[in-house]
Design a binder for these strands. Structure first.
Lengths: 110, 110
DNA sequence: CCCTTAATTCGACACTTGTCGATACAGAGA
DNA sequence: TCTCTGTATCGACAAGTGTCGAATTAAGGG
């Protein structure tokens, strides 16, 4: 298992990143590089059941369109996935991507 | 040991980030959110002896002033430290910060 | 001193990003 | 079908970012 993680990348301390890998990984880090986005991500990640409705997490001090915009960015970066169920849209964390980032930074895969 | 790491933060999956912690951590992720910067960081981190002279790592496809600019950003984010020795300036990774990010993403501290 | 090499700082500019209000879309119920 | 609530998209704009060439500082060697 975890083939996708193995694909990219070993810890930064062990080998130099290729340009392509750097582009891929930088996009993920960039997605967490905004305080509002990081908080949204954190709210989803720590929410009971592993998923959260937008309505559960949208209290981060910015307007509703801005929340939606940031969630889209997190989705495009592959960090979150979304699913509509009835009126509500639920977001959940993509664990492989999270693990890949953690691994790159030198931690063990969770 | 690792008091600074413990100070910020437990894994995202275990608790929601405060606004202040989100600002602190987002700044670190942001620093790695550029491909050129991530490559520079990777080159320093994987360099023999745990440190690298600017001249060792400046071949990343952008001009030398741009390299210097990115290294400054990484320094300001606390990810790298620098020291001048004679003509050359050496950069090295700050391990606590790296560990804090990895921990936040759910990996074990390295 | 002057010259050479290493690295940073400066000034400028195109491009990206975060934010908002207004608007549109989706589903559930009356 | 009309309305209400939840979410996404649009259009606009100020602020931030990555990049460069030119100029500057730092250190060493003639």
């Amino acid at each position: 298992m975890q083939d996708e993680i193995a694909a990219c990348c070993p810890p930064v301390t062990s080998a130099e990143l290729s340009e392509t890998d750097a582009v891929r990984m930088a996009a993920m880090f960039k997605a967490l590089g905004d305080p509002v986005r990081l908080r949204l991500f954190s709210k989803v990640a720590s929410h009971a059941g592993g998923e959260a409705c937008v309505c559960d997490i949208q209290d981060v001090g910015v307007s509703q369109p801005t929340v939606s915009h940031h969630l889209k960015k997190l989705r495009e970066a592959g960090l979150l996935s979304s699913e509509r169920r009835g009126t509500w849209v639920y977001y959940r964390v993509e664990p492989q991507v999270l693990a890949a980032m953690s691994l790159l930074l030198g931690g063990s895969a969770s």
